[in-house]
């Protein structure tokens, strides 16, 4: 478990500044951007401006930011329906994400994909997948291409604890292991599938890590609410992948502050659980971390203001944006740009 080691290196006596101030500020900004954008998505949902469903990552920001900040340009992210955070973390604008959630023409996919399918290939976001487990094999395929062509990029695949019980998870892990693919599997263990606690339906205590040995992989469990821990873990796994030493499976312990999806009040959670996890809120942890490292309050306040402005501006732009036009209904079904299935 990486946590103990990282705690030992944590600031206090003899600060471990292996991450450096510039990266720490980037990690903070990234997490805050996700927090503010997700909170805004929730507010817009209450105003009936976010339509359909949406799955927020409030409370899970450190996983997305820690991995994304360790990625290089060209590395590929494969996300789930709970993918706003990972999409934002790769640098996609808040406007594009909120626009898609609000089903406007300025959205990332002009309303054709929706909240569960955020995709921005130019940022390395190779899709958000809403069929549990489907993207683990797909990430293997992207990694196979890198291996075959001698490309140095890593494919990173994010999924939840519940996903460890579907067949595609196990097929993908075995496949990645036998072919030694440069892919990193990241399980965000937030303790619940939709509404059922993961422990009620899983034969092992740690749904991802306790399966690692079946595929000859190291058992890795980390504190998913500490962005520094996540970042260091990601760097190690990426270095291993780039060195041709094969896949990693990482279980990051975290917690979602909101319900599963927009409609879920999360009544199934035991009393006090949310409050306990909020004490370990990744944003709170990280603000304190910056302070421990001597980052001035004014620098933090400046980032806070810039992030809020991006989210506020995006909100206004999206509210004013037109709805998607009917003429895109039949575009891009096939590669010729159209939908013709007959002559």
């Amino acid at each position: 478990m990486a946590t103990a080691q990282d705690r030992a290196q944590a600031p206090g006596s003899g600060l471990n500044d292996d991450i450096g101030e510039a990266k720490r500020l980037a990690l903070y900004r990234s997490q805050l951007r996700i927090r503010e954008a997700e909170q805004r998505a929730y507010d817009l949902f209450l105003q009936n401006l976010v339509k359909g469903t949406s799955h927020l990552s409030l409370g899970q920001e450190a996983v997305a930011s820690g991995f994304a900040e360790a990625m290089q340009k060209g590395d590929l992210s494969f996300c789930t329906y709970r993918g706003h955070a990972h999409t934002l973390a790769r640098g996609v604008s808040v406007e594009k994400v909120l626009g898609e959630l609000m089903q406007r023409d300025n959205g990332l996919m002009r309303g054709k994909g929706g909240s569960m399918h955020l995709t921005s290939e130019e940022h390395g976001v190779m899709g958000s997948y809403a069929i549990i487990g489907a993207h683990l094999p797909i990430a293997c395929g992207a990694a196979w291409r890198a291996q075959y062509k001698g490309d140095k990029d890593v494919s990173v695949c994010f999924f939840g604890d519940g996903t460890t019980n579907i067949g595609a998870f196990h097929e993908a892990l075995n496949f990645a292991a036998i072919w030694k693919l440069p892919v990193v599997f990241v399980c965000e263990n937030n303790l619940y599938m939709e509404y059922t606690p993961i422990g009620d339906v899983t034969a092992v205590k740690h749904p991802a890590a306790d399966r690692a040995a079946s595929y000859g992989l190291e058992r890795i469990i980390i504190d998913g609410n500490d962005a520094d821990v996540v970042y260091r873990t990601a760097q190690k796994a990426f270095a291993k992948a780039r060195a041709g030493e094969g896949p990693s499976l990482i279980e990051a312990l975290t917690y979602r502050h909101s319900g599963h999806s927009r409609a879920d009040p999360a009544k199934y959670r035991p009393e006090g659980e949310l409050e306990k996890w909020k004490e370990r809120d990744p944003i709170k942890i990280y603000r304190e971390r910056l302070q421990q490292f001597g980052v001035g309050d004014s620098i933090i306040a400046k980032i806070d203001a810039e992030v809020r402005k991006e989210v506020d501006d995006a909100t206004e732009t999206c509210k004013a944006a037109p709805m998607p036009p009917a003429d895109i209904l039949t575009t891009d079904v096939y590669a010729d740009g159209g939908w013709a299935w007959r002559n």
Binding site: H135, G141, A142, W144, A168
Partner: peptide, 14 residues
């Protein structure tokens, strides 16, 4: 699933 998923990931990326 791994066969078809891997084919897709490879196809998406070149």
């Amino acid at each position: 699933q791994a066969i078809l998923g891997a084919a897709m990931g490879a196809a998406m990326t070149g």
